[in-house]
Design a protein around this nucleic acid. Structure first.
Lengths: 338, 338
DNA sequence: GGCGTTTTCGAAAACGATTTCGTAAAAGCG
DNA sequence: CGCTTTTACGAAATCGTTTTCGAAAACGCC
């Protein structure tokens, strides 16, 4: 079964390759009846254009890359879902790259992407990343970048984020209003924009309510090791001056906290209240149900992808300033009940 | 900034393009010192070979496709994690395609993949799929397919699955031994290999324990609509002759069941016991903690990808018979306590 | 020193689509 | 009718690699 390419179609139709190509792309230069003949044979032989030949010639791949720290996490899974939905609609292809929260991998991946393999990329930074040169290089090569969630403030590219500062503020305020005074903040990485913004909101809320911040309650957790985080929380809860609430900046840390409380036989919310940024679909079913700040993850993905495609289609970089802020929702449940 | 390609390197070095190409691929035909010169300049100019030119010429893309029904689901997220880990190690790229459980999309995606965009594909079938011609076509085009989890029995391709029959049996037996007699089985789709195997195990366990199966307790749920499933379970639990246990064939259905019990104020496990196939990381934290049959999702992904790469590297199709069966684990928790 | 082998490299033809440039025929126009 | 313009198509260059085919230079051997 010979492969069916333009040459094959051209020969069978007694036409030139160029004519067939134009007919398939519905060029105005080709007569309606010729187009019809071409379409029919193409359909009959199930012609599938070779995407690599086309990409080589056009310098366009109709492919985008999604570079994220992890995937086994509801936030990122939902975001990909949103990205993929737009990509499928636009006829684009989606390459997935995981950094596993490692700077090295992020660099290796983005460096590879300078090859022209993709037309644009969607990035959420690794927790180790503090230097953004690898991303600047990509931009300079003319490859548009759109950041989502974990962004690089200093790079002039579109960004899709949530109202992290306000959410952090609201979360802390919610705890304060339910009577907490010693609120621990669990951060995954102080390199990350999101964690910092959330913490700023937390600090501001404390200040506004005249609670002096105890630096020992702002705890830097591990990006990679959940087991370690579990131990960290246990140690935290064993301190003589135990906090009366935990504010987890990401889902994983809430889960570690739940396990720690179980281990120590501490009651939530009796002994300690817990709130967390989270897209856990089972938040309402936990024991006790978990109060969350939930990000519109699917929409974030959709929005980020939409912006990228707008750039790719208009071929203009004038969207660089764009900054979309979607709102997270505070969903109060039993883990912070009075 | 002129693009740096082989021609550019060749010119600057006073060599032929072919020589440069060979040097970079570390060909034995090139002297060590020439290689050194080439490598150095390539590094200096940050030469990135154009992957599409290479793919076009070699008829190899170093890219695989992963075609799955959904991604916002711990099983598939973990499987992708496993796949990606192997792909990254082998220097392959991973394209993600979601069918959203729709046959039409699965067909459209696989038809597109006949173009040669990928060297091989990993598939987990959509719940609507009953006809496999689109996959047979792919195979005939010479594109290797490896199935995982939701497989097409009739296609002679490698398959990576779990011991679904035994697991279904064990799950049902566990319920029976804890005293249940009217066990409802919630199936997502009777097109799916996994759901059928699990149900067979369930039926066999009933029979072995001399419990006659009530067909009204085998319930076909919706693939797409979780809200509908929630209502279905509520209706089930409102029947005069209420089941004393629910065996959910997939995670989503367990979650719907928990919500239904909450709505109806039924106690788990007091009024009804629940067991489910699930990779929920929060299973132990639910209220009550959920007894699960947990699949080694990450390993399934790794194994499937490994087999695919073995085929791609050996270029032989003799792995067609391969069938890897990994074992799921029954993890007993409170939702089935006596 | 002549002759066969290696070693090392270059020229050019692929890969399959797109696009530039050109041209024959048909159509339009006064 | 003679001219220009439009219509409809073909030939060939091109995208950036890889690979085939050679071939000059260096080397070994008697």
């Amino acid at each position: 079964m010979a492969t069916v390419d333009l040459k094959r179609l051209a020969k069978e139709l007694g036409l030139a390759v160029s004519t067939v190509s134009r007919a398939l792309r519905d060029s105005y230069e080709i007569s309606a009846e010729t187009k019809e003949r071409v379409f029919e044979l193409a359909r009959k032989l199930n012609y599938q254009p070779n995407p690599y030949a086309s990409s080589l010639r056009k310098h366009k791949s109709r492919t985008i890359a999604v570079v994220i720290p992890e995937i086994a996490n509801n936030f990122f899974a939902l975001a990909i879902n949103g990205i993929e939905s737009i990509a499928q609609e636009k006829g684009y292809h989606v390459l997935i790259y995981l950094t596993h929260e490692q700077y090295e991998k992020e660099v290796a991946i983005t460096r590879h992407l300078q090859s022209g393999r993709v037309d644009g990329i969607l990035v959420s930074l690794s927790g180790e990343t503090t230097n953004y040169d690898h991303l600047v290089d990509l931009k300079q090569k003319g490859i548009p970048i759109v950041f989502f969630d974990r962004i690089a403030e200093s790079i002039n590219s579109p960004k899709v984020i949530t109202n992290d500062y306000e959410s952090g503020y609201k979360a802390a305020e919610h705890l304060i209003q339910s009577g907490c005074r010693r609120i621990a903040y669990l951060s995954i990485s102080n390199n990350l924009s999101i964690s910092n913004k959330r913490m700023q909101g937390y600090l501001e809320a404390l200040e506004d309510h005249r609670i002096k911040h105890d630096p020992k309650l702002a705890i830097q957790c591990s990006i990679h090791d959940n087991e370690e985080n579990y131990k960290t929380v246990i140690a935290l809860l064993k301190r003589k001056n135990r906090p009366d609430a935990i504010f987890a900046s990401v889902e994983r840390l809430a889960i570690a906290s739940y396990h720690a409380c179980e281990e120590l036989n501490l009651s939530i919310p009796g002994d300690i209240r817990i709130i967390s940024f989270s897209n856990l679909e089972t938040a309402a079913l936990l024991n006790p149900s978990l109060t969350t700040i939930t990000q519109p993850a699917f929409e974030i993905g959709k929005e980020a992808a939409s912006i990228l495609f707008k750039i790719l289609e208009k071929k203009s970089m004038t969207f660089s300033e764009e900054r979309i802020i979607l709102n997270s929702k505070l969903i109060v449940r039993k883990s912070t009940a009075q």
